[in-house]
Amino acid sequence: MEKNLYFKREVFIIQEKNFYKEIILELLNEILLKSYLDKVSDIHIESQENNVRIRMRVDGTLYILKNIEKDLGIKLISKLKILSELDIGEKRLPQDGRFKGMYLDEKLDYRVSIVPTLFGEKCVIRILKNNLLDLDLNKLGFSKLNLNTLYGAIGKKSGLILCVGPTGSGKTTTLYSIINYLNKENLNIVTIEDPIEYQLNGINQIQYKKEIGLDFSEILKRVLRQDPDVILIGEIRDIETAKIALTASLTGHLVLTTLHTRDSISTIERLLGFGIEPYIIASGLSLIQSQRLLRKICISCKGIGCSECLNGFNGREAVEEVIVINDKIRSFILENKGTEKMKEYLISQNFISLIDNGKQKIKNGITTEEELNKECLL
């Protein structure tokens, strides 16, 4: 049976007997409480040669919380395995699981990944807050121009919308925010994910399971028979998934997905590099958004550093660039002569790049030049 954590009197309490007096539970309570209060996205529990290091990621940056005795760390990972319904005796193979929690009325999901390392197991806990208020397109930091452009694209009945960028650039949050916005009773929305990050009421969410033959392309073929209006694919990982996603967008479906590319223009090069016919890309693709997450200067101390922030920063917001696939862009894709002419055309149309939008955020006092260079100059 799945076990839950509940926040009460400033401790997380596991709803199971014989746990209350354990030192290991007190440590887990302390870590989870700290992670909640500090808005941590990931907890790293790492086996070292002589101890176990616990680190936390805040606004994209890891910092050390504490080092604990090796034996205590092993017991902590075992406890997390029990909570996540994993094999406590398996220490040679990676394992993935999850458990739930609650703070007051806020539901929390903890996704657990365990892998064997040289000095023992490493556990990473991804913290997922099921707060729909956080999944709001208006609060992600997009410029007004690009936000309106995005609303226009997702308001259509068909087309492929690609959200691109490196790992940790906020792509998944953007897609979930779109789904949250579109989540109405008159639409059949289906997602194909690995893993399911946020559990949303009213959405049909399907877990990718390659080990039993249930991969993205296979699920997508089946989903198309389920009369969907909107399809979210967690990530395009192969040529077949890309082709099916584009084909689905041509047959009356709005398709949302992500792709790991450097910027919006290189996304088109990537799709062409898959060997997909240019006419399918030109006809199916509606919009490409490339994005990054930039740390925000703390408003309390103006970046000096205080109890409210971490080294002068508090929170992150997106910086983005958007390409709408209009008739001119389609002609460039069909010609398949590279993207240089496309770049020239976009510049002539006053295309606002990631860097341009980032510079505006610097001007507005939201972030710093160092932060922009670190995240966007790849």
Rank of each mutant, 00 (worst) to 15 (best):
Y198V: 01
H253L: 09
L162P: 15
I362E: 00
K34Q: 13
F313Y: 05
K39R: 14
I333D: 05
A242R: 03
E375T: 08
L187F: 13
G284A: 15
L62W: 03
S169Q: 04
D327N: 14
K361H: 05
T117M: 15
E90T: 01
E320F: 05
K374F: 06
Q226N: 11
N50Q: 10
I288Y: 06
G213W: 02
Q349M: 13
T241M: 03
A248M: 00
R225F: 04
T258P: 00
D71L: 13
D96I: 09
D238E: 08
D194P: 08
T267K: 04
V324Q: 10
R53C: 12
V255A: 02
R295K: 01
E49K: 14
Q207W: 08
K302G: 02
G73T: 09
G101C: 12
V11C: 07
K144W: 08
M342W: 03
I329F: 10
F7V: 07
L5W: 14
S47L: 11
L128G: 06
I178W: 02
L354E: 01
E240D: 13
N311K: 11
N4W: 05
N180Y: 09
I45E: 10
K302I: 04
Y151F: 15
G152I: 12
E269Y: 01
E340F: 12
L108M: 15
N314V: 06
E197A: 14
E26D: 13
L162I: 15
Y279A: 12
L271W: 00
V40C: 09
F119D: 13
L246C: 04
K91N: 12
G252I: 01
E340T: 11
L140E: 04
T241D: 05
R53N: 13
N311D: 13
I366Q: 04
I125K: 05
G60F: 00
T149H: 06
Y345P: 03
L377I: 15
K359M: 06
R316W: 02
I31V: 14
T117I: 08
E371A: 01
L346H: 04
T339P: 11
S177T: 12
N131M: 03
V112M: 10
G168F: 02
R330N: 08
S264E: 07
K171M: 10
K337F: 02
H253Y: 09
Q291K: 04
I114T: 11
N204S: 14
R111D: 06
K107W: 04
D238A: 09
K302N: 14
C306P: 07
I179M: 13
Q95M: 13
V324M: 12
S286D: 07
I288R: 01
K34A: 14
T339D: 03
K328E: 12
A318Q: 03
I233W: 03
I31T: 06
K39E: 02
N188K: 11
I77Y: 11
V115Q: 11
Y181E: 14
I231D: 08
N51W: 02
N204Q: 08
G338L: 08
I74D: 08
G155L: 01
L378I: 12
T61P: 00
G213D: 07
Q48V: 02
I268N: 08
Y208E: 10
N188V: 13
V190D: 10
Q291C: 11
N326C: 11
P94R: 06
D42A: 11
T167Q: 09
I54T: 11
L214N: 05
D59T: 01
K17N: 12
R270D: 06
K144E: 15
T117V: 13
L76H: 07
T367P: 04
G73S: 09
L272K: 01
I219G: 04
L294N: 04
